[in-house]
């Protein structure tokens, strides 16, 4: 474990006040950093020869509704091919202003991972070129992995999206319209 905690010690020396908290529960080195100056910290992690975290393993988020303040935490996992160590970096994100900087300039793989976090948690990424929903559809209401999203919530039916230049079979179109009318008459 001596070698493990040396990463955290080194980070505390070089980043100082940026690190709010750190732990190594079950050997997983973790640091919590401030939301301000996020990109500089990640650039340091990537470029520093001693750390050399060149591989972004994963980006995800956790919703600590009513357990912690700030409510959300965006969690980044890194790995270094050369030094063979891992690091977890967490950033607190408050509910009223859910925005963090996008890592897309540093790692291209952040693109889809950040889109998924936006989709599931409603956290926006500043500087992301294409922040659309990824697993769900654009008309989906709410963000399902938030703790205040009920498990058995039904989503409203959405009208068929018109895609420009697509051939539309009128028969299926008419049938869909009929179904829609039936549905609206019932409710």
């Amino acid at each position: 474990m001596g070698g493990d905690s040396s990463i955290i010690l080194y980070l505390q020396q070089s980043l100082g006040g940026r690190i709010l908290d750190s732990h190594a529960f079950r050997g997983d080195e973790t640091i919590v950093i401030t939301r301000e100056g996020l990109l500089e910290v990640f650039l340091f992690l990537k470029e520093d020869p001693k750390l050399d975290f060149n591989f972004l393993t994963d980006i995800t988020a956790v919703d600590y509704l009513g357990k912690k303040e700030p409510r959300f935490e965006v969690v980044y996992h890194f790995y270094s091919f050369r030094a063979k160590h891992r690091l977890r970096v967490k950033v607190g994100v408050p509910e009223e202003d859910p925005i963090v900087d996008s890592l897309i300039t540093l790692w291209k793989g952040a693109n889809w991972l950040e889109r998924e976090v936006w989709d599931m948690f409603g956290i926006r990424f500043l500087g992301h070129p294409d922040l659309r929903r990824i697993l769900l559809y654009e008309e989906f209401k709410g963000h399902p992995l938030r703790k205040d999203y009920p498990v058995n919530l039904c989503q409203p039916l959405v009208p068929e999206r018109e895609v420009k230049g697509t051939f539309v079979d009128q028969r299926s179109h008419n049938k869909l319209m009929q179904l829609k009318q039936q549905f609206s008459a019932k409710s």
């Binding site: 793989g109 693109n111 889809w112």
Partner: peptide, 28 residues
């Protein structure tokens, strides 16, 4: 294939995230 699990000390996972290799491969 990675699993990131957060537990709050109960009998159920508080948050369970899978790092899916296929998803990341499809992003490239």
């Amino acid at each position: 294939l990675g699993f990131y699990i957060v537990s709050d000390g109960g009998g159920k996972p508080y948050r369970l995230r899978v790092r899916p290799p296929s998803f990341i491969a499809m992003s490239a």
